[in-house]
Design a protein around this nucleic acid. Structure first.
Lengths: 120, 120
DNA sequence: CGGAATCCGATAGGATACTG
DNA sequence: CAGTATCCTATCGGATTCCG
């Protein structure tokens, strides 16, 4: 058993799962992989996420050290989010998860359908 | 966007996360990796999980095709759970998640502590 | 522009008791 | 032995409003 930041886990893999579990975390990491993005940009990239949810997920990713929040002291306010070193190191794992996911749904071709994202 | 079994995802990795997200799923998969296990054995291996939770997590893993439930028509009842082919294919991914988890917490050595599991 | 505050419903998880 | 059935609590996510 491992205790990390006041939570206990039975396997270190559970820690990673907790880092990326959250409705928008994977999407955020995917977007930031292309380079730093402003909050407003992120909202347009993920139009189905509410401001509140986006903020919450970003805060968690930041607290877990996967992303970096950079505030520019200008008016109007400008905040940019980018991957940290640690966050960049997650890339191969995320790729592997995607590959397994793709292979998994191919085992059940009848139950899958692909949709283009809604644009508001 | 991908729709799979009435749920939508923005990345196939999210599907994998949903398969293994659940309080006891990783632990169950880890135990079954050593070979099939009876329900009662599993309870002793994971004494902190309630019967109800164990049953629920097993059902989900079974519905998702990762484990196989084998009922022996004997008295008293005997039910054995084992990894499916698909479940066995998850091994390298789980190993990678564990490795990343271990590497991750090593970035924060001051916030980690190791405990031996409670035995009821 | 980039949030924070409040409220509220849905789902995950837990405690306990009962059963074929 | 291997579960169900009830009930309850806590956390997650969504809708909306307000603010420096």
């Amino acid at each position: 058993m491992i205790t990390f930041r006041d939570k206990t886990y039975r396997c270190t893999s559970e820690i990673i799962l907790s880092l990326v579990s959250g409705k928008w975390k994977i999407s955020i990491l995917n977007e930031l992989a292309n380079g730093p993005v402003r909050f407003n940009q992120l909202q347009r990239l993920l139009p189905e996420a509410t401001q509140r949810m986006l903020t919450m997920q970003l805060r968690m990713l930041e607290n877990d050290g996967l992303i970096i929040r950079k505030v520019y002291p200008v008016s109007p306010p400008k905040v940019e989010y980018g991957l940290s070193k640690l966050g960049e190191q997650f890339a191969p794992m995320l790729t592997m998860l995607c590959d397994f996911g793709t292979a998994y749904i191919e085992s059940y071709p009848d139950e899958v359908s692909y949709t283009s994202p809604k644009h508001a």
